[in-house]
């Protein structure tokens, strides 16, 4: 019933979970009735002039689905939005990825797409913030910026002519992510929104929802960020000017225990949410964290059966009130 987690539910917990999930089902089946299709299902189209989008195929004058998902119609366009597929990049998406290779003038990133993404040295801001041509020296120093297995946040720039996917990180908010936790959830559970970076003030935690289903939960860093610090610490004394500007040398080099616990708490909330297959967004995650705090649960107890049931019940409650309001 739930992918990837094996929990032992007691009989009452099982019943409660079933009840909550049945409630969710009745809520959403009112909204989208019969829009679900599976492979090789015929999609009814009104006109012959319908445009066939992703996930469809024309077969004997019928439009047929090629993936399992939900039929979407936009004017004449008919397409199938699939569940559980890998990430499909769109220009401007904010993504989180892991560096797997440092190559000539570029880093290769794993982003849960069908290919590795490419971040060119020339499409990111240099740590010193100066706009200039990238020299051979910069190229040699690439490892001082990102090395293999670093986690990076970037933006999708687009496809090149050769079909490879390019990223860019032209702002201080992009770059290396440190002191935190990377979560991988199915990308269909992350919705594209205006805001993907969140600073949770009360917990001192940064939360980044990558459109590719990689979610970063980490200690909050000011936008001057670690990338800059690294460079400052390593660079020669000429650069004291910028170092004094930052004044970051006294900052603690460790994450306080409290913040680490908050990071794990938020990460567990997201894990539970994605295990249940619910859409992950800021409000839902915060509610779950608040719920766990109000129940006085330890961080590890959040991954137990009882909390899964609680979260399911809470989500059912939340969705039923929001539909009633409409």
């Amino acid at each position: 019933m739930m992918r990837g987690i094996q929990l032992s539910f007691s009989n009452t917990q099982k019943l409660r979970l079933e009840k909550a999930l049945a409630q969710l089902e009745s809520l959403s089946s009112k909204v989208n009735s019969n829009a679900t299709v599976i492979v090789a299902d015929t999609i009814p189209v009104d006109e012959d002039a319908a445009l066939k989008g992703h996930g469809t195929l024309e077969m004997d004058k019928n439009v047929v689905a090629t993936v399992c998902g939900v039929v979407e119609r936009v004017n004449k366009l008919v397409y199938v939005r699939s569940f559980r597929a890998r990430y499909k990049p769109e220009i401007g998406d904010i993504i989180v990825g892991r560096v797997i290779e440092v190559a000539q003038k570029r880093w290769r990133l794993e982003i849960n797409f069908s290919q590795d993404a490419v971040l060119m040295l020339s499409s990111m801001n240099l740590p010193d913030g100066i706009q200039r041509r990238r020299t051979a020296i910069d190229e040699l120093n690439m490892r001082s910026i990102f090395v293999e297995s670093d986690v990076i946040c970037a933006e999708v720039r687009g496809f090149q002519h050769d079909g490879s996917l390019h990223l860019q990180a032209r702002s201080q908010k992009y770059g290396k992510l440190e002191r935190g936790k990377l979560l991988k959830i199915p990308p269909y559970l992350v919705k594209r929104r205006k805001q993907h970076f969140h600073h949770l003030d009360q917990y001192g935690v940064d939360l980044i929802f990558g459109c590719n289903g990689f979610i970063w939960v980490g200690e909050h860093v000011e936008v001057k960020d670690a990338m800059l610090e690294d460079q400052v610490n390593k660079s020669d004394p000429q650069n004291t000017q910028s170092a004094s500007l930052l004044g970051s040398s006294e900052e603690p080099t460790y994450t306080p225990l409290e913040i680490r616990q908050y990071i794990c708490r938020i990460a567990n909330a997201i894990t539970v949410f994605s295990a249940l297959g619910f859409m992950v967004n800021l409000e839902a995650v915060m509610e779950t964290v608040t719920l766990s705090l109000s129940l006085n649960l330890g961080v590890h107890e959040m991954l137990e059966a009882e909390f899964h049931v609680r979260v399911a019940e809470q989500e059912a409650e939340r969705r039923s009130t929001s539909t009633r309001r409409k």
């Binding site: 829009a35 679900t36 299709v37 599976i38 492979v39 269909y188």
Partner: peptide, 18 residues
Amino acid sequence: IREILLENAKTLGNRRGV
């Protein structure tokens, strides 16, 4: 197989919500 797949797709959609 179709029955199983359809049921699976429906649960995924319902759980996810709108």
